[in-house]
Design a protein around this nucleic acid. Sequence first.
DNA 1: CCCCAGGTAGCCA
DNA 2: TGGCTACATGGG
Length: 301
Amino acid sequence: MNSFNLRASDLDLALTLGSGQVFHWRCPDRVQWEGCLGMHFFRLARRAPSTLSVHTTAGPAMARSLLRNYFGLNHSLRSIVKTFPSDPLMQASLQANVGLRLLAQDAWVALACFILSSTKQIIQIRQMVQAISQAFGAEVTDQSGQLLDHSFPTPGSLARAGESALRACRMGYRARFLHQTACLIDQGKFDLVKVGQLALPEAREALMQLPGVGPKIADCVLLFGYGFQSAFPLDVWMIRILRDYYFPGQSPSVKALQAFANDYFGRHAGYAQQYLFDHVRALDASTWKKLVSDSPFIPSS
DNA sequence: CCCCAGGTAGCCA
DNA sequence: TGGCTACATGGG
C-alpha cells in the first residue's frame, strides 16, 4: 500500500465519516477510518491538526485527487458555514460539529444507500450496506493478496443478484426497490449521469421516477451524491427539529417546512441541515426539551 | 410486549 | 391534493 500525508484543514474524520450522510466507513479502533472509494481501499487517520495520514491501494496522485474531491478540500468550510443563520440552535450545532464536512459521494452509492435507509436506524443502514458489499461487492486486496475490504456493489451486480438474494441481506421490503432500481440503471433505462446535468427541480423529479425514491430520498441523493447543496432532506428528525424549534406550537405541514428551510438556511441549506441533524440526534431528550423551551421563535405575548 | 427508525407506494375520499 | 396504512426488520 502507498502511504503519504495529506493536508486537510477543517476536517474531522469521525464527525464526517460517522455522520448520517455515509454508511460504509468503519472505525475499528477510534482512530483509523477504513473504506473504499470505487475500487480503491483507504485507511485514514488524523496525524496533525491540518494533516491526514493516508494508506491506500491507489496510486498517490490518484489518491490525493480522489480524497480532495470526496472531502471537498478545495472548498472553504469557514466560508460555507458563514452563510448559515445565526439563531442559537444553528450556532450550537456549529460549535458541536467543528470539522464536519459534506462529502461528494458517488451518485449510485448514495442512491442505493438511501433507498435502504427508509424507516431504519443509521446503525442498521450500516449493517445492510456492509452485508450487500460483502455479498455482491468486489474483493479489494493489497499486493500480497490480503483481503482489505469489499467495494460497493455495482448496479449490474445487484441486478444479477436478484431480489431474493438481496432480501437475504435483511433489508426487507427495500429489496424490491433496490433491485428494480439497479436493473433500470444496469439496463440503461435510467441515466444517473444525465440527472447531474439537470437543474435541481428537474433532477429531483427524475430521481423520484425510480422505485423506492420519494422526495426525501431524492433530496439526500441530490445533496450527498450530486452536490446540490441547497437540497434539504426532510426526515423525521428534521421535521421534528423544524416544528419544535422554529415553529413552536404551530405544527406546519411538511410542504410549508420545505419552503421555509430552503429560504431560511440559505445557499448551503443542505449543509446546514446536516449540522442540525447530527447535533440534535446526539442530544438527550431533556437537553432538547430545554433548547426548545428557550427557542427565540416562541411568539412573545 | 411496546415504540420507533434519515419513507414510499397505493388506495381512498 | 391530503390523509391513512402496509411494508420487514431490529434496536432500545
